[in-house]
């Protein structure tokens, strides 16, 4: 440790002070407000708002969309990360850049893209009609939009880890006659495990909170295509403040659970290496 001078002390405490003030003002205060507002009229009213039929359906839909997004993005993320780090091919740079598109594009636009691609104006709409597939203003649309916005999270976590290591261990295992799946299970996966779980957590967090893209494509059909964030908006617009905050508090609690999971994963991952 170097010796602190008076001026460096001032700098240190000013910076710490600014950070703490910012965290209180921007994060803690709103969080407390949400919880306080939710319980303003007592626990009974809160319980009623939370166990409301539409709310429960919104919770299930959110969890469904999140689960599907995590599963599909796991498959996509693993294959994308694997192909981008283990193979050389034309258009590799383009693909790497395209993967990031969902985080750079506004979610509203993402929603609109799907609305135009699968909606009534779309040239493939009659085809979808023939096959009796509903995407827009239905659950598949919501899942699609959620997958889209959470698309890069898992692959982005894996690519740097895989890149930093190279192929030696896989080559060594292959030379000894190990098959692809054995190599992945025994050599590659133990290495990327923590980064992968971290990516899953980030993906889940983003999927649960997604509003913009889902809002455009959902059609706000209560009990059918309403996710939790959309449900909060509806309640809020109807001046039902207590239920709105009560439902928000569910999202807040999910977020906190994910934060804890994240910290545990980060801690364990660091200890392993």
């Amino acid at each position: 440790m170097y010796k602190e001078t008076t001026s460096s002390k001032i700098v240190k405490w000013t910076l710490i002070g600014i950070s703490i003030a910012f965290v209180i003002l921007m994060l803690l205060l709103p969080l407390i407000t949400v919880i306080a507002e939710a319980f303003k009229q007592g626990f009974d009213i809160y319980a009623k708002a939370v166990s409301d039929n539409y709310t429960v359906k919104a919770i299930w839909l959110t969890l469904e969309a999140t689960l599907l997004a995590v599963i599909i993005n796991t498959v996509f993320g693993l294959s994308a990360a694997w192909s981008l780090t283990k193979f050389h091919f034309k258009g590799k740079k383009v693909l790497t850049t395209l993967i990031d598109l969902p985080v750079t594009v506004s979610p509203i636009i993402a929603g609109l893209i799907f609305l135009l691609t699968f909606g009534r104006q779309s040239p493939i709409y009659p085809l979808l009609q023939d096959w009796d597939i509903k995407i827009v203003f239905a659950v598949p649309g919501i899942v699609l939009a959620t997958i889209f916005v959470t698309f890069p999270f898992i692959s982005r976590e894996l690519i740097p880890v895989l890149e930093a290591r190279g192929n030696d261990e896989e080559e060594a295992a292959a030379l000894m006659g190990a098959k692809g799946w054995t190599i992945f299970r025994k050599i590659t996966f133990p290495h990327i495990k923590w980064a992968f779980l971290y990516g899953v957590v980030l993906c889940a967090a983003r999927a649960m909170g997604e509003f913009g893209a889902v809002s455009v494509i959902s059609g706000h059909l209560r009990g059918k295509t309403n996710t939790l964030p959309l449900h909060v908006e509806i309640l809020f617009n109807e001046f039902q403040y207590v239920p709105a905050f009560a439902v928000s508090s569910i999202l807040v609690m999910l977020a906190i659970a994910i934060l804890i999971a994240r910290s545990v994963i980060e801690y364990k991952g660091r200890k392993k290496i």
Partner: peptide, 12 residues
């Protein structure tokens, strides 16, 4: 085959 980096399986 013995690799330059040894390529030992680090999780084993």
């Amino acid at each position: 085959f013995v690799f330059q980096s040894y390529a030992l399986f680090r999780y084993m």
